[in-house]
């Protein structure tokens, strides 16, 4: 009788633990989306130019974060964790997406931001510059594109090394090269 009672209690305890853990994960996931949502949308820009497909990609990244979240043990910062997943999902997307590129110059302005409603104070010149920058980034090889996107997101060399899995020295060298390529690409679009 007492064995059965303790088994029942143990089971109830386990159910409560699982339910609490799930709520914890949901809260963490919501926080991650609100903190890094904009960055994820921007990262998706590096891999997809078409607004509708990009939104799908952003959702894909969010789903991948949700799936990986229970295994996140804090070995790296949460930001690194999110950026790693976003980039890796972006790479898979580049492969799955055929044809891989649509030149950004051909995209209508309404397709530019992930939020389709334009901000009232946005100026035409700013939009042009932004489109030029996006187009130039899109024209870079994937590895260089990643470097540039991480640099623009404001990651330090150490954080970039952590996301990409290379040494900090290597980051410096490659970042320099990627930056020169971006300058050339922007120059060609001027």
């Amino acid at each position: 009788m007492s064995d059965a009672y303790s088994d029942k209690n143990r089971f109830a305890g386990q159910v409560t633990f699982v339910s609490e853990r799930r709520h914890e994960l949901e809260a963490q996931f919501d926080r991650i989306l609100s903190e890094h949502g904009a960055a994820i949308s921007r990262l998706a820009f590096g891999y997809e130019t078409v607004a509708g497909v990009r939104e799908e990609l952003v959702q894909d990244i969010a789903l991948a974060i949700w799936q990986a979240l229970p295994h996140f043990r804090g070995e790296c910062s949460e930001r690194t964790f999110v950026y790693r997943i976003a980039h890796n999902r972006g790479l898979s997307h580049v492969w799955k997406r055929r044809p891989p590129h649509q030149p950004l110059d051909d995209i209508e302005e309404s397709e530019q931001p992930i939020d389709p409603r334009p901000h009232p104070d946005e100026q035409v010149a700013q939009i042009d510059q932004r489109v030029r920058l996006m187009s130039a980034i899109q024209s870079l090889p994937v590895a260089h594109r990643q470097m540039i996107v991480l640099m623009l997101e404001g990651l330090s060399h150490a954080q970039m090394a952590e996301v990409l899995g290379i040494t900090e020295n290597n980051v410096g060298v490659r970042l320099n090269r990627a930056r020169n390529m971006l300058k050339d690409a922007l120059g060609a679009r001027a």
Binding site: A38, S41, R42, Q112, I114, D115, R117, H119, E122, R130
Partner: peptide, 9 residues
């Protein structure tokens, strides 16, 4: 320019 891309409401 980069960060002005997405400011979702």
């Amino acid at each position: 320019q980069w960060t002005s891309v997405a400011k979702p409401s």
